[in-house]
Design a protein around this nucleic acid. Structure first.
Length: 774
DNA sequence: GACTGTGGCCGTGGTT
DNA sequence: AACCACGGCCAC
């Protein structure tokens, strides 16, 4: 029987003649050609837990079970008794197969009420995800299929597989990436109206190919600009170029919610079938919480979505628009063109359109470059979590953690807990718990500071203390385990006899990451792939604690989250008292870090102290030195009613090489004006480097005087504040909401995410009434 | 924009 | 004027 070795990229399923078929779109490993593998060998199933009867008996009962669905008798096709683990218990479950995925929800809900059924599990794991987990197939990774080639009337050959399996760890070597960006005829910042406003330019770029299609002619020397006679022709050309290019990946910036749905709407207006899918299907718009757009056989990646979902916390940018993100990650920004004038130029001065085409292409180029840069991260996440690339690149941290756990649970024979119901979520949301400890610093300027912290405090606590939802307060260790005492008087403990699921998973992740880092050290030059791999592992480990405290988590455990935070407080507070006992002055501490002054002690004394403490810690936990600073500044809170108190989460450090680290101060908060931020950072720098409070004082007085004389330019006084919710949803109307209202009334599009710019003019009225557009 | 968590600062509006 | 809740954004 012929064998096909290939790399799967995009996975879907379809039902034909009443049978489900898994579609794996990918590239042949032999000649790099496109292939479409059909796998007929997989059937949907879920688990049913018996009540008061053995699994075998329940299986017999269920064999007779039938439900009517549009005239068809829906039945189980196969029922097997299986030994599984449910929470802390070994159970006998019925693995119940159905004909097609659509039967699962129907049978699940009708079986749930039966007298001998206690619980239904894993019925909400979608068919494609189930397939990848059960078959152990990882997208992008070499697979082998046994089957036969089949004729198809499409451009792509079909391989009917009887079996598909992963065939090693080889990753697809090259990917054809095409980047897309459109410009529409719509006044900038106003509501998007695809029904009304045409697409006037479309840019495509990738692998040396670049094209901007537009339908007004002007004189140009740019050979990438192609003129057509109208929007319909633009759409036709666009479609044909995509098909001809034959990309593995089509990318855009916000293309899930903007470019692709827009194209689809415009194409429909002309009754043009935008059939770019390899099975000749059009753009597929999915409407979940957020709009997603997929194309059969072409992996659509929205760079913006990936950045928002996965890179958000690690990316220090003022906004997530293409310009800011490109500047940060690529060191270059968008082309210069005033988009606000595009509609007017389009109507009245087509001869001036060339810069807009350049701008259009530049956006597509930047998006392409960003994707190339981020692809190692996406690939590593896909390899680690095992979900399909389309979903993986759109998943939040909690989803990545959850799907990773689901895959691990499958291999360990552990049944996946169901998602919480709406009522559970409401209930869970009401329960919060005490978090980390923060030390109140004494305000002042200090010298010779050593900062050290626990390496991955929470992940290492989870592993060291065997924390997992099913090991908490186990009856078997009630009398023997060490207890964590809560303020409420309750105590928590974790099983010492059986390893917990989450604890073991996180232990593995930590070890795996250490191995990758060791590997990196041995290489002569930095490896992007290994860096991305250890980042993915770190991200996963760090998210596990928050995940267990997250109301919508399948493996939710408030007890676990509480215990982790409580142990974290114990460890850091114990460390502080040990340091003080050792004669160090502790200046500050937040969660997992501690700042001490050396005073007359040598630096070696700290290293000796760290080494001594490390000997007393559980194996997987350790302290590491973060750095030495010649000066450090702590300040008082502004609230000065009674006693002066030291401000937490605000400090500045001066390192030996003169570098200043500032945390928490207004100077790094984006909702403060540039002038305020600049003055504060100058003052901090004067205090740290010159130790000259008087100079700082006169500098501030000078700035105030200049401000009063109106010598400070207006731009320096602009405040940026982000709208976090709908304008109508605010209980109190602050300055930025007041400005946003005015913008909305002028027809501008403002909503959650909009950055509102304003200045405050002098006067005595309410501040929001003195807020003006700059 | 976001559905990983809690702790914290500080300006502002709203209420008394 | 005093107090508190709201809201934004940061530290970890």
């Amino acid at each position: 029987m012929p064998e096909l070795r290939f790399y799967p990229l995009d996975i879907h399923y379809s039902v034909r003649e009443g049978k489900p078929i898994i579609y794996l779109f990918g590239r042949s490993a032999e000649d790099g050609s496109r292939v479409w593998v059909h796998d007929h060998s997989f059937a949907p199933y879920f688990y049913i837990i018996p009540k008061a009867v053995p699994a075998g008996e329940l299986a017999k009962e269920l064999a007779e079970f039938s439900q009517d669905r549009a005239g068809r008798a829906v039945k189980f096709t196969r029922l097997l008794a299986e030994k599984k683990t449910l929470g802390a218990d070994a159970v006998s479950a019925v693995k119940a197969y159905t004909e097609v995925p659509g039967d699962v929800p129907l049978l699940r809900s009708s079986v749930r009420g039966l007298p001998h059924v206690s619980e239904v599990l894993e019925a909400d794991i979608l068919f494609v995800k189930r397939y990848l987990i059960d078959k152990g197939i990882t997208p992008f990774t070499l697979c082998s299929a046994q089957g036969t080639w089949n004729k198809s009337d499409l451009d792509i050959p079909v391989f009917d597989a009887e079996e598909v399996r992963e065939a090693g760890t080889d990753i697809i070597p090259t990917l054809r990436i095409l980047s897309l960006d459109i410009e529409t005829y719509s006044p900038f910042g106003t509501r998007i109206e695809p029904e009304k406003n045409p697409i006037i330019m479309a840019a495509l770029t990738g692998n040396g190919f670049s094209k901007v299609i537009t339908w007004k002619r002007f004189k140009t020397s740019k050979d990438y600009i192609e003129f057509v006679d109208g929007e319909l022709e633009l759409l036709e050309k666009l479609k044909n170029y995509i098909i001809e290019f034959s990309p593995d990946i089509l990318c855009g910036y916000n293309s899930d919610a903007f470019d692709l749905p827009y194209i689809k709407t415009r194409a429909e207006k002309y009754k043009l079938d935008f059939a770019v899918g390899l099975d000749s299907s059009s753009l597929l718009i999915g409407r979940g919480r957020y709009v997603t757009t997929s194309i059969a056989g072409i992996l659509h990646l929205d760079v913006f979505r990936f950045i928002i979902a996965t890179m958000r916390t690690s990316l220090d940018v003022p906004s997530y628009d293409l310009n800011s993100v490109s500047l940060e990650l690529l060191g270059k920004g968008k082309a210069d063109a005033d988009l606000e004038d595009l509609p007017k130029t389009w109507d009245n001065h087509p001869e001036l359109l060339e810069p807009y085409c350049e701008y259009n292409l530049q956006d597509a180029l930047l998006t392409h470059e960003l994707l190339v840069k981020l692809l190692p991260n996406i690939k590593e996440l896909v390899k680690l979590v095992g979900t399909d690339p389309f979903d993986t690149a759109r998943m939040s941290y909690s989803q990545l953690v959850e799907w990773y756990l689901i895959r691990k649970a499958h291999h360990a024979g552990i049944l996946v807990p169901n998602k919480p119901h709406h009522d559970d979520i409401t209930d869970r949301r009401e329960h919060t718990y005490e978090g980390a400890f923060v030390f109140e610093p004494t305000p002042g300027l200090f010298s010779n500071i050593v900062v050290f912290d626990f390496r991955s405090l929470y992940p290492s606590i989870i592993s060291a203390h065997n924390i997992s939802p099913e090991t908490v307060n186990c009856p078997c260790c009630k009398d023997t385990a060490e207890k964590i005492e809560e303020k409420s008087g309750e105590s928590l403990w974790f099983c010492t006899k059986k390893q917990g699921f989450i604890a073991s998973v996180i232990g593995e992740i930590i070890l795996q990451r250490e191995a990758v880092r060791d590997q990196m050290k041995k290489l002569p030059e930095p490896s992007k792939v290994l860096h991305a791999r250890q980042m993915a592992l770190k991200t996963l480990a760090n998210s596990m604690y928050g995940y267990m405290g997250f109301f919508a988590a399948r493996w939710y455990s408030l007890e676990c989250a509480r215990a982790i935070a409580a142990l974290g407080r114990q460890y850091i507070q114990h460390l502080i008292s040990q340091a003080e006992k050792e004669g160090f002055r502790v200046l500050y501490s937040d969660t997992d870090s501690i700042f001490i002054t050396l005073e007359d002690k040598p630096k070696e004394a700290v290293n000796a102290f760290i080494a001594a403490v490390n000997k007393t810690l559980p194996q997987i936990m350790s302290l590491k030195s973060e750095g030495f600073y010649t000066k450090g500044l702590f300040v008082a809170t502004k609230e000065d009613k009674k006693d002066m108190s030291g401000a937490k989460k605000k400090y500045a450090l001066l390192s030996q090489n003169g570098k200043i680290t500032i945390k928490g101060f207004e100077t790094i908060r984006r909702n403060w004006s540039p002038i305020a931020r600049e003055v504060q950072s100058t003052v901090i720098s004067m205090l740290l480097t010159k130790n000259d409070p008087d100079a700082a004082f006169s500098y501030v007085k000078e700035i105030i005087a200049r401000m009063r004389r109106h010598e400070i330019p207006l731009e320096q006084a602009i405040i940026l504040t982000q709208l976090q919710k709908e304008i109508g949803a605010y209980d109190s109307i602050g300055p930025h909401v007041a400005v946003a209202r005015r913008l909305r009334d002028r027809g501008k599009k403002v909503g959650p995410g909009s950055i509102i710019k304003y200045v405050i003019i002098s006067g005595t009225e309410k501040i929001r009434d003195r807020a003006r557009l700059p």
